[in-house]
């Protein structure tokens, strides 16, 4: 019973990820694509957590933290590109 609930959750999160991939490809503006990529990362984390509950292992918990950190850095980089147009500036108080 409990395992069936877990598999149903995995199915629905996967369906949600298909919708998000549609938004990444089709999205009218860049901001839509960035939000969709961030949501794909969070869905991936939840799928891995559910699978590690099903398999009763703790080997995937490092991967969850890794994906969380990488999606955080990626979203920050995309947001900075959208706001400033440059990702790494040489001197943030200067005129360049």
């Amino acid at each position: 019973m409990f395992e069936a609930v877990l598999w149903i959750s995995v199915t629905f999160i996967s369906l949600a990820m298909i919708g998000l991939i549609y938004r990444v490809i089709k999205g009218p503006t860049v901001a839509d694509r960035v939000v969709a990529l961030d949501a794909i990362g969070i869905s991936l984390v939840s799928v891995i957590a559910l699978v590690s509950i099903v398999l009763e292992t703790s080997a995937f918990l490092d991967i969850i933290l890794l994906i969380g950190i990488l999606t955080f850095i990626g979203t920050v980089a995309f947001s900075k590109f959208l706001e400033k147009g440059v990702i790494m500036e040489y001197d943030r108080n200067g005129d360049r």
Partner: peptide, 18 residues
Amino acid sequence: LMTSGAIVLLLLAFDIKT
């Protein structure tokens, strides 16, 4: 790779000179 990810986060929040 994770350590360089941390340095990249530092580069994003501050700048190359700092």
